[in-house]
Every structure is written in C-alpha cells, then in structure tokens.
Computed example of a mutant assay.
Amino acid sequence: MIELKLKPREDRRLRAGHLWVYSNELQTDPAFRGIAPGSLCRVSDDRGKPLGTGYVNPHALLAVRILAGNAETAIDADWFARRIEAALALRQRLYDAPYYRLVHGESDGLPGLVVDRYGDWCVVQLGTAGMENLKAQVIAGLQSVLRPRGILLRNDGGLRELEGLPAYVEAVGEVPDEVELLESGVRFLAPLRAGQKTGWFYDQHDNRDRLARYVRGARVLDVFSYVGGWAIRSAAFGASAVTCIDSSQTALDAARRSAALNGFEIETLRDEALDALKALRRDQRQFDVVVVDPPALIKRKKDYEAGLEHYAALNRAALHLLPADGILISCSCSHHLEAEALQRILLRESRHAGRRLQILEQGAQSADHPVHPAIPETRYLKGFYCRVLAA
C-alpha cells in the first residue's frame, strides 16, 4: 500500500468529509510521478495521522480519491458488495421497480463509479484509473448483490480521457443492444450500446413526474428529446400532441418505438436544436409547453461564456414558440452553471421577447442521484418550470 502525506493545513477538507485530494496538496518527490495510475494508497496528514484509504493518479490534478475513512480498510469484492447493498437500500425505498441509478459515484462512497440498473441488467461506467484497476472487484460486488443477467461496461466517457484511460465497451454475460424500462408506469426502450452515456437519463425522473399538472390537453415540444422521456411522459399525462427534436435518428427511432409501446403516436424532427426551433417559428408553429433539456453546454470553466450564450439562444428561441400562458421548462446539467445564472438568462430573454415570466417550481436531480454535502460538484442538475405571460 502506497503511503501519501498531505502538506500542512491541507487536511481540513478531508476531515470535513470531502473525498478528493489535489496534487498540490500532497508532499511529493520525484518518485511520485512513477506511481502506477490507480494504485491503492493510504493518506495521512502532515504529522502522519491516517485519514483514509483511496487510490492515486499521479498524472491527474485530482490526484487522490478517498474510498474509506479507515486507513486499514481492505478494498475487495466484499467491500464493494457492502457499499452496493447500502446504495440498493436507498433505491428500493425510492422506487417500486428496479430501474434507477444504483451507484452515483462519490455520493454513494464509490468515487469514479456509476451504475445504472435496468431490471436484470446493469450498465457500469468506470471513470477513473482507480476504478478501472478495481474492475474485477466492482463486477464481483454487483454479481454478489444483484446477480444480474449481464453487465455492460460503457467505458467511453470523457472523464476517462482526463485520467489517461482508453475508451472501450465490454459486456460481462449477455447484454441486449436495447432494453425496456419503466418510469412511473410508462414504458421506454433504452439503447444501451448505441445510446448516450448509460442509455437513459434517470436523473430527470422526478422532474418528469411533475409534468402532470402542466401538460393535460397541451401541445408539447421536447427539445433535445433523446428517446422521448419528456414527450412520452407528457402523452401519458394526457397531452393532446407531442413533438420530439433531436439530432440523432437512432434516438428518434427509439422514441417512436417507445411511444408505440404505450399506444401513443408522436411527431419527430431530426435536426440541430436551434435550427429546428427557428424553422418551427418560420412555420408559425406554437406549443403550449416547451421543454429545453440540453446536454451539458459548459463542461469546463473556459467554456462558460460560450455556454451562457448557447443557453440564452435556446431559451430565446423556445420563448418565441409559446403563446401567452404557455409553460417553459428549462433545464441545465452543467455543474458550472449555477441555478441563479440560469434564472438570470430566463429573465433577460423573456424581457427581450416582450414577455413576463413566473417561476412556478424549481427541480433538481432525482433522489437516486444523491448530493454529497461536502462536494458541491455532485449537485449539478437544475430546472425551472416557468409560466410565460404577455408583458
């Protein structure tokens, strides 16, 4: 076990419950750079008092992630099984059916690990060198607790590139290309291999549950629809018509099949979001409810200004498609965009459009994506439910 020591006065964040150590907080020597990425390590303060067990990547700015507060903990398959059992207990309390995010990284005490459950199948993302090294233990822990029919390793996310890891997709057992899931009684098809991230976005589950009071009898537009989560839930709540916009034909095809599973018909438009919104305005189309739920448009701090303008342009275009007394649901999953900044965008764009805005509700990530109280980065999703009125 590699022993690492913090510089003086760099232990306060760990003692407050944080799980990250940056490279400039460690006492290092030339040999530090030679440590194999992902190696297990023990971390102590500058006086040698143990603070925990984790894993280290000497080539990353975020050099250490803590797995356990006890420096003597054995990080093996049994340890993963215990953590997964604790995570499972929460999800079984939250949801009646086994479709949810089972493990949400740091918030479940498993930094670098994401697991989404689709009934008998799990999709796993190992985002760090440490979790990649522990792959066998992760798989053994999942098999011990859930006994899934198959596990799909979707290790092709951007975080791996920062860790110097290759991208790959690998199946353990039999995993279909597409699986059916239930969300509040509505059926969907999730493309596990060809879809985005893990195949489905469970983090909007609770926010989609809020749709019922807004969409009955309404014309609903789902922008960045992916496989139609917002649109099909709206149809189930009694929307008169639903339209999906996405740039992926694969996603739109899955949306149509999901709609058919529930006995609905939907309109799909394949195009870039802004182009599609502008075309709808030229065609004088209007909708009673517009949902703007883009992917993260600000992934790094240096993208902040460009991302702000992108969010502004999308919401500006959406406002032009809403009549007076319409509903705009505007979301952001960019951690770097605070809720207050999104609210300012909505205010400014509504004023420019000659509209008055009322914020009715504010949403966040679903409860199967818990927030670690010491790690602000685990709170990322925000959404505003707005009523749009004539000025």
Rank of each mutant, 00 (worst) to 15 (best):
D288K: 07
E267P: 00
A324F: 01
A235N: 06
G263R: 04
G307Y: 03
D271Y: 00
S258L: 08
A317L: 11
R316T: 14
E265A: 14
A324R: 02
D275H: 10
R282E: 14
S247Q: 14
A251Y: 00
V290K: 03
G307R: 02
Q284G: 01
A236S: 12
R257E: 08
V291P: 09
F287K: 06
S234D: 06
A255T: 08
A254D: 05
R256C: 11
I327Y: 11
V291G: 12
R257Y: 00
V290H: 06
L274E: 11
Q249Y: 11
Q249L: 15
V289C: 13
I266N: 02
F224I: 04
G229K: 13
A318L: 15
S240M: 00
K299I: 02
A239R: 09
D325Y: 00
A235K: 13
R281L: 07
W230V: 05
K301P: 01
D283R: 15
S225R: 07
R270S: 01
R282A: 10
G326Q: 08
I245F: 08
F237A: 09
D283S: 03
N262A: 07
R316V: 00
V292M: 01
T243I: 05
A231M: 09
F224T: 03
S248A: 03
R257M: 07
L221R: 12
D271K: 13
Y311N: 06
E267Q: 14
K278G: 00
A317W: 02
A254E: 03
D288V: 02
Q284C: 02
G307F: 00
H320F: 13
I232W: 01
D271F: 01
A318M: 13
S234K: 14
I298F: 08
D271R: 07
K301M: 07
A313L: 09
R282C: 10
G238M: 04
N315R: 01
V220K: 08
G238S: 01
T243D: 08
T268A: 14
N262Y: 06
D303N: 03
A241H: 15
A251T: 06
D283Q: 15
A318N: 12
E265L: 05
R285F: 01
E267W: 10
I266Q: 03
Q286W: 03
A259R: 04
A306K: 15
G326N: 09
V292L: 12
F264Q: 03
I298V: 15
R219E: 07
D271S: 04
A260C: 05
K278P: 00
V292K: 03
A235Q: 10
L308D: 05
P295V: 12
S258E: 01
D246M: 05
V289H: 11
L277F: 08
R316K: 07
G229S: 12
G229E: 13
A276Q: 05
